[in-house]
Write a protein that binds this DNA or RNA. Structure first.
Lengths: 266, 266
DNA sequence: CGTCTGTGTTCGACAATGCTGAACAATGGT
DNA sequence: ACCATTGTTCAGCATTGTCGAACACAGACG
């Protein structure tokens, strides 16, 4: 663990979350570092294009280089590449917006966003993040993690985004169990009021759940009784297809690859 | 200049350009570093989520963290925030796709992409990069830089993307001069065959050209004689409006802030 | 089936490296 | 005009990262 690099990364993270512009002193206070230390790190990061300094105020913010890197990540993401075609097909089939996501720390990040064919104007949500416990995409992934990893995630308190967000570890565990049983997860206005989602996990060649894929949209439309069954079937089928493209064998798909007694999938 | 951080940044850059997945030995060879050095840096970057290692092959690639950072950059970009509304208005007015861009090193990076209202399916180009000399967006910005900065950019050889790309420094200088005279730049199939663009610079409160804004699309449609004049006027007006929103006074807009005798804009 | 080159990884020692303290210049507010 | 605060610079000390050689493991080949 190289500390100067780790500190630089923490600075980037700090610049990325919360205030979009920070001063040297402010960063030093937040990370408990001396002013000159932060200064040196910032200067280096600036020369690499990862941060930029406002010449007028002297404050620092993220630089354009990080966007280039983010784009390169998307371009190189195998999950994204393999799921784009099938996500487009799913969106056309069910006429809903489709998201493909990855779990990073305790949040789910959207790596691909296929628009709902009918809607003219929608905002692109690639790069957006949602707490894992408040969305179907997150539950679909976490339901396939090992007990230890789930425990680790549930150790932190669960933030409530809406009145319907599950914040009790027990309630979340129950949701994970049913998601694991059914093979897909359902979310009903737990992240945004009015919005819901249905998502299924995507496995790679080793059987690990590397991400998830699902539909998002108005809860009344997606979660109506008859829509729900056809949607969930289509979502699961698409996720299976992507998993197959990633090299997952059919046998590995139920997520039995991790230590600990797995819940039975069917 | 902290070398370990600089090296980490070079690693990220290397992972971002070219092969999406690299091995320790390969990185070491490219950056002329010892294997253990690269390994330590990669481990640290991995723990920060900026790179991730494929457990099967052991090779490394960019991690999801960089996408989060890239998104945070977009969220915090003042140019982007201030230009979104006006870009949408321009797109509606002229019925063309609108790009907002920033100059980073010797390439132009798209920080906002407003779709052409009529087209149903288009791909989002945010984060895409184009060499500055091969697009109107780049010429619009560079035309407002100081002589020294232009010289620096022209020192490197200019890559040809199409048969129409200007690669002779003299030709580019001439294009910059006319762009400066008119207040906007025109590109005709210099980056992609069939595509053209019209762009104007955006200034901040200090009078510096912090980016540019323009329309892109099929060259025959955009650059037809009658379309060209109305488009260029609309683009320039929108760019002026954004500049005003960023705090640029009218007097500063012609780009008089830099050394050297500026050409009159009107 | 053994060998062998290649990979990513670990260990330890040297010294180069980056960190911290205090002092400086410049800005903005009062 | 003062003061407080900012970002920045400069030194010396010791921590810290670097490098060479050796390790475990994989796949390729004879």
């Amino acid at each position: 663990m190289i500390q100067s690099v780790a500190r630089a990364a923490r600075i980037l993270h700090e610049l990325g979350s919360g205030s979009p512009t920070l001063g040297v002193t402010e960063i030093g206070a937040r990370l408990d570092l001396a002013k000159p230390t932060v200064h040196g790190l910032l200067r280096t990061l600036e020369q690499c294009g990862l941060v930029s300094q406002d010449v007028a105020t002297g404050r620092y913010s993220l630089g354009p280089g990080v966007l280039q890197l983010g784009n390169a990540y998307l371009a190189g993401s195998e999950l994204r590449a393999r799921s784009m075609l099938r996500a487009a097909g799913l969106a056309r089939q069910v006429n809903e917006a489709v998201w493909v996501s990855v779990l990073v720390d305790d949040t789910v990040m959207v790596v691909h966003h296929e628009f709902r064919p009918d809607d003219a104007v929608q905002i692109l949500e690639v790069g957006a993040t949602v707490p894992w416990h408040a969305c179907a995409l997150g539950n679909a992934i976490v339901a396939n993690l090992s007990e230890a990893e789930v425990d680790g995630l549930l150790a932190h308190p669960l933030r409530a985004l809406t009145g319907r967000t599950r914040t009790q570890p027990e309630a979340v565990r129950k949701a994970l169990a049913t998601a694991q049983d059914r093979g897909f997860a359902i979310e009903n206005q737990e992240a945004n009021v009015g919005d819901g989602g249905i998502a299924a996990p995507v496995y790679d060649h080793s059987g690990r759940a590397v991400g998830s894929l699902g539909v998002v949209g108005p809860a009344e439309r997606l979660l109506a009784r008859q829509a729900r069954t056809s949607l969930s079937r289509a979502v699961v089928e698409t996720a299976r297809a992507v998993s197959r493209d990633l090299g997952a064998s059919r046998a590995k798909q139920p997520g039995l690859s991790h230590a600990g007694p797995p819940r039975r999938a069917d």
